[in-house]
């Protein structure tokens, strides 16, 4: 059974649809990349899948007993967080908040999980540093480590590499690829179509026309070829 199944989903704000009649499935272990022009509704889709906003119509089914506290999320960067006084460790361990249950404080298990996530993201030496003093790439690693603490099965990433230089971008993609190899299901919004096509198993293209299928199918589809040409011309 699929981890996530979306049927005839329409989403938008205040009753006005941005994307309509979406249908797709995400199987455990797959790597789905969501592409589309700016403003096409990729972030809105992420938020709807996470129940941060209500769908206009249609259904979202979480299969395999997937619960909200098994999902990790890396939001698109917001300015608000940037002046917040918090250490890297405090932010990473806050990814364990759903494991608290009725407890008030993090225990051994959560601390070990946070340490492990920081090790995987290679930010152990930044543990006590203030988040706002870090570079953009380091900040993204911190948020990814936090998402890892929350993710037991699936991780949703919204433009994880925007604003990062090519070297850091490559490193981050490598980390995400490794996660996928370890069995974590990935759903990623990306601008960067070429990388998306290298790593992803499935592609969801939203915009004026919608496409969902495997990478191969996308490459040979009309919409895929058009988008590739257009994006290729820009870079």
């Amino acid at each position: 059974m699929a981890l996530l199944e979306v049927n005839d989903l329409s989403l938008g704000y205040d009753g006005k649809a941005i994307v309509e009649h979406l249908n797709f499935k995400v199987n455990a272990g797959s790597y789905l990349c969501i592409v589309g022009e700016n403003g096409s509704g990729k972030t809105t889709l992420m938020k709807t899948l996470l129940h941060l906003q209500k769908p206009l119509s249609g259904t979202i089914n979480y299969g395999d007993g997937l619960k909200p506290d098994e999902i990790g999320y890396l939001p698109q960067q917001t300015e608000v967080q940037r002046d917040f006084p918090a250490s890297v460790y405090e932010i990473v361990i806050s990814g364990c908040q759903s494991r608290l249950g009725r407890r008030a404080f993090y225990g051994k298990e959560e601390k070990a999980l946070a340490a492990d996530a920081m090790r995987r993201m290679a930010i152990e030496d930044l543990k006590d540093r203030c988040y706002r003093d870090l570079s953009g790439g380091q900040q993204q690693r911190v948020l990814l480590a936090r998402a890892l603490c929350a993710a037991r099965k699936i991780i949703l990433l919204d433009e994880p590499v925007s604003g990062l230089d090519p070297k850091v971008t490559a490193e981050l993609y490598k980390l995400i690829e490794d996660l996928n190899r370890e069995g974590v299901t990935i759903m990623m919004v990306s601008h960067d179509i070429s990388t998306a096509l290298r790593n992803a198993t499935h592609i969801l293209h939203i915009g004026s026309s919608v496409f969902f299928g495997t990478r191969q199918e996308y490459l040979s589809s009309k919409i895929g070829r058009m988008f590739l040409e257009q994006e290729g011309g820009e870079h």
Partner: peptide
């Protein structure tokens, strides 16, 4: 958690 990132907190339940 709610102060630092309310959306994330909601997303993880």
């Amino acid at each position: 958690a709610v102060t630092f990132d309310e959306n994330f907190a909601r997303a993880v339940g």
